[in-house]
């Protein structure tokens, strides 16, 4: 069995286990048999089983969407992180670098800040989705601006993209700070909720809403594997081998923005996953993007779902911020691999 197969199989097994545990654990104790019964009933496999109404509600309307959201967001962050690192030829790159997070934050904060002007109260359904749409639009707009600014002679230039990204991030950050400063107590609370990044708001509408935006990139990005491999030896070199580097760049930027923008818009900003997950994959399974991309999606989903489960369970009934868990969980693993295998990434 090849190394690649081992990685895929262990990631899949891990992911299934994490999903099962996530569904079974939470502030509310639901017996294993009940869990199975409720899921079977929900899937229409069995009828007329008596289950606790509240347990059913918690499982089907709170936990299940939350686990699914974790899977989607984790996969999106993992695969986009790997792809963005690929086109920037920089292991420190992450989707936030091209302005996705900063743009989303700015628009979210703007909508919260000017809600009075817009005659929308964020407590209601329209307000909530307005926020999500706004954040998505902000992510897309920022990434598009960065992309446009990065063009030299009509071709996107990676170094300029990095600089443009830094500039747009700084600008969006400053404007976000300004709006935050002007916000009143109530708005500040909403802004804080949003900025913290949490899967807590998961519901089925949200899942239906972001699924296409996440799944399309997750299934299309692996096709850029060869192209991104060639990027590692240089854009010009890639072109000499018959690839069109500009198509790769625009494809990766658009797909990553779609995926990460959609996630950020419903969960707020969750750091770390996009940065470290691809690294862990590379350290374990080599740097071939044809493996790194799909494996990062799997590991991202696994890490985020696991982190969310721990965030829910560790100090139940309250929750820990998920960013704390992802960092606490991922950093030691990463440092261990780094320590053991540092030759793989350093001379």
């Amino acid at each position: 069995m090849t190394k690649t197969k081992v990685i895929y199989i262990s990631l899949t097994i891990g992911l299934v286990l994490v999903i099962l545990f996530s569904l079974g654990m939470g502030a509310m104790k639901i017996a294993v048999m009940d869990t199975v019964k409720i899921l079977a009933k929900g899937a229409g496999l069995v009828k007329n089983v008596s289950v606790d109404n509240l347990a059913e509600n918690v499982l089907l309307y709170v936990r299940l969407p939350r686990v699914l959201l974790g899977l989607l967001v984790g996969a999106a962050l993992g695969i986009s992180g790997a792809a963005i690192q690929g086109i920037f030829r920089n292991p420190l790159a992450e989707p936030g670098l091209i302005g996705i997070s900063a743009g989303a934050s700015l628009f979210a904060v703007l909508i919260i800040g000017f809600e009075a002007v817009l005659f929308v109260t964020l407590g209601n359904i329209l307000g909530f989705y307005l926020l999500a749409f706004g954040a998505f639009a902000g992510a897309g707009l920022a990434a598009m601006l960065v992309y446009q600014f990065s063009k030299t002679d009509g071709k996107p230039n990676v170094a300029t993209m990095l600089l443009a990204g830094i500039a747009i991030n700084a600008l969006a950050g400053a404007l976000t700070g300004l709006v935050t400063y002007m916000a009143d107590e109530q708005q500040l609370r909403t802004i804080t909720f949003w900025m913290l990044g949490s899967l807590g708001g998961a519901n089925w509408n949200m899942i239906w809403g972001i699924t296409p935006f996440v799944l399309i990139p997750v299934f299309l990005l692996p096709f850029y594997g060869r192209g991104l491999n060639l990027f590692a030896i240089g854009e010009h070199q890639a072109e000499q081998i018959g690839m069109n580097p500009n198509k790769i760049k625009s494809g990766v930027v658009i797909l990553s923005t779609l995926a990460v923008g959609a996630c950020v818009s419903v969960t707020g900003i969750i750091g770390f996953v996009g940065l470290l997950v691809p690294h862990i994959i590379r350290l374990v399974g080599g740097v071939d993007h044809r493996v790194v991309l799909p494996a990062s999606a799997l590991l991202g989903a696994l890490v985020l779902t696991l982190s969310d489960m721990l965030a829910r369970v560790l100090v139940a009934p309250v929750e820990l911020p998920i960013g704390v868990i992802t960092a606490l969980l991922g950093t030691p693993v990463f440092l261990y691999i780094l320590y053991k295998d540092k030759k793989k990434i350093l001379q």
Binding site: R89, N229, A232, G286, V287
Partner: peptide, 15 residues
């Protein structure tokens, strides 16, 4: 930029 193996790099020529 990444820790590709020698064989992987040579094979890139065949993409």
């Amino acid at each position: 930029s990444l820790a590709f193996t020698v064989e992987e790099v040579v094979l890139m020529g065949r993409y």
